[in-house]
């Protein structure tokens, strides 16, 4: 399979769509946690999965809570949410959680709300619909991330990467939206339809 690339115009349109989607997600998550949140401007790139895994190695800290949630439709893929141990403990303190199970539950719900609100809005902007699976969670040492089944299902991915930051609570998470190979072509088509409508 030849590598697919996004043109600057396509990236620009996707960036704009994501800005709208992230604005929506930020508001929803901030309300959910009753805290002021910011999401960094999403960084968009097409890359080989192996390169993505190398990028994960650059995340700070040694161990992460790692949760994923798949979405299917014309635009299919998976979101991957990382939150380091220290941030997870700060989240637990902020929410006054009583056990590790409660913390897992909170991270899963955060993943669900982030993924759904982001992807729902992005799908709306692209005039399509998606369905969501249940999120799942694991606590992963960095060295084992490459073995995760999630990443074995992708050869090439569009990575939409942003940081979720609750500054006062010292909570940082990083979310990646991974799209499957077939969806990258679909996405390129859709972005060009949007572009043409703007011309």
């Amino acid at each position: 399979m030849n590598p697919i690339t996004l043109t600057e115009d396509e990236k620009d349109v996707l960036q704009e769509l994501m800005n709208v989607a992230y604005g929506n997600a930020t508001a929803v998550v901030a309300e959910m946690l009753d805290a002021f949140a910011t999401l960094s401007i999403p960084n968009i790139k097409v890359m080989e999965t192996s390169a993505l895994l190398e990028e994960f190695q650059s995340l700070k800290g040694s161990s992460y809570f790692f949760s994923t949630q798949a979405f299917v439709g014309e635009f299919s893929g998976e979101s991957a949410f990382f939150i380091d141990n220290e941030s997870a403990q700060n989240l637990s303190t902020h929410l006054e959680l009583e056990s590790e199970d409660d913390l897992d539950d909170a991270i899963l719900e955060l993943t669900n709300v982030l993924t759904s609100s982001l992807t729902t809005r992005l799908a709306q902007e692209m005039d399509t619909e998606v369905r969501f699976s249940l999120p799942s969670i694991s606590k992963v040492p960095l060295g084992e991330i490459a073995n995760n089944q999630t990443f074995k299902e992708y050869s090439q991915v569009i990575v939409i990467d942003t940081q979720l930051i609750f500054e006062d609570q010292k909570i940082n998470g990083e979310i990646f939206i991974l799209t499957k190979d077939g969806s990258i072509e679909w996405l390129k088509n859709r972005l060009n339809i949007i572009l043409e409508a703007l011309m």
């Binding site: 929803v28 959910m32 709300v113 759904s116 609100s117 729902t120 799908a123 709306q124 619909e129 998606v130």
Partner: peptide, 25 residues
Amino acid sequence: VSADIQEKARERVINSGAQLHVQKP
């Protein structure tokens, strides 16, 4: 009450008898 507020989801639940479909939280 869902984070998924897509139109199709809304139509489906309203057609099934739900009174409202609202976004979390």
